[in-house]
Amino acid sequence: MINNPEFDERCLKTRKDILEIVRFGKRGHIASAFSMVEILVVLYDYILNVNPENPEWLERDRFILSKGHGCLGLYAILCDKGFFSSELWKGFCAFDGVLGGHPTMEKVPGVEASTGSLGHGLPIGVGLALAAKMDKRNSRTFVLLGDGECNEGSNWEAAMGASKNQLDNLVVLVDYNKQQAFGSTYEVCDLEPFADKWRAFGFETLEVDMVKEPYNLKTLLSGLPLAEDKPTAIICHTIKGMGAPFMEGNMDWHHKSKITDEEIEKVLLALED
């Protein structure tokens, strides 16, 4: 494992920010957000060409969080990048708040699609990537899917469309933590052979171990497109609840409400270990 204290520090900060947001709403999909922190930090610190001063900038890269329930992570990183102030955290899941339990594009600067209903992000991503091709823009589109979300057939419809339209400006990232709401992905609806599926659908497909070598994702994404005229799929092997050992793989934390300050302190302590 390549030691990268600076990167680790960024991920730790993002996880702590997630907990600060939870403090206000006292609920959320913390484990789902923790699972994808390394992916978000790689994307927003090194890869995405976005402008927090001008979120609507036409030439920007688009990032769609298709697993909308992971929005705590997205809110934390967007705030960190300056898309909005941490003042908005206070309204997390509140009546007048703009940061809901799933993200809405009309309300939150930097959110590219309203997600929460699974299986929507990739079809939209294909449309965004196709429009960029039509307009000869350099914008790239990144879509982060949950693994359980890949049960939805719409993803595979869109995957066919992406490869048919030769969208080498489209990147699918899968947060493969192998746990969905009811249990393990192997038990609920097995995705394996997962990488082969994406390959069969015409994607240039690679896998990254986000636990041992998260930084490899940066190296891979720095070389886009991985193949000419082909969309890219990167299966990111993660752990649900990553960073807080007692939460890792613990189904009680898929979605939690009435989270107490004591529980938040416990998670914070676990993160520091």
Binding site: E112, A113, G119, H120, L122, P123, I124, G125, V126, G127, L128, A129, L130, A131, A132, M134, D135, G153, S154, E157, A158, M160, G161, K164, N165
Partner: peptide, 27 residues
């Protein structure tokens, strides 16, 4: 270049059309 036939895949087709519209197109 503005004519697409995307297959028997309505969920995808609608999402894709939404993505096009978000980029200023009128699908």
């Amino acid at each position: 270049d503005r004519y697409f036939v995307e297959g028997v895949a309505e969920a995808y087709v609608i999402g894709m059309a939404a993505g096009l519209a978000m980029s200023g197109k009128m699908p």
